[in-house]
């Protein structure tokens, strides 16, 4: 970890900035083209490819910072305070759980993504229960777990493939 900090601070700033921008674009694409399912909390979560990839490449702290910047900027540009609260709850819980789960032996970035997707939906469900004061929303949990697992599978496979890309390895060697 230490030796790669030698390259240069500006290189790192540039890489993190690109990652933030990519995550915002993913989020915006999904905002423009939502899945026509009509159940709360069901989407592919393409923006989560970025925190997962960064978590695997650079560790938890950069992933947390980039995700926070992404959520706040996207929220200001395209959303509102409520959507920021949802994204933060989902993003934070998902990142913490992914940090813990990736220590399991034999798990790949895909497995981390699956668990992260599920955690993301659970975080958002918790906020939804608070905002509506309607505990029965919790009955959505099984549906949201299945949806989160499938979305997380997609996100995880894309992140895994990204991590194997030689150019990504080169760029990330900071």
């Amino acid at each position: 970890m230490k030796k790669m900090n030698m390259r240069s601070a500006s290189h790192r700033v540039a890489v993190y900035g690109i990652m933030t921008a990519v995550a915002m674009v993913f989020g915006y694409i999904e905002h423009l083209l939502p899945l026509p399912i009509g159940i709360y909390g069901i989407k592919a979560g393409l923006a989560n490819i970025v925190p997962l990839t960064i978590l695997e490449l650079f560790g938890a702290f950069p992933a947390a910072v980039i995700n926070l910047v992404r959520i706040v900027l996207s929220g200001i540009l395209f959303g509102n305070t409520v959507s920021i609260a949802y994204s933060l709850a989902g993003g934070a819980l998902s990142l913490v759980v992914m940090m813990l789960i990736r220590r399991i032996r034999g798990i790949t970035a895909t497995g981390v993504g699956i668990v992260g997707g599920v955690a993301h939906n659970i975080g958002q469900l918790i906020i939804a229960v608070f905002l509506t004061d309607e505990i029965r929303i919790a009955f959505y949990l099984p549906v949201l777990i299945i949806a989160g697992a499938i979305a997380g599978l997609l996100v995880g496979v894309i992140a895994s493939m990204t991590l194997q890309n030689k150019n990504i390895k080169k760029i990330s060697n900071i």
Partner: peptide, 9 residues
């Protein structure tokens, strides 16, 4: 290279 998906996943 690492696997894309494994048995644990």
């Amino acid at each position: 290279k690492k696997k894309i998906i494994g048995r644990t996943d």
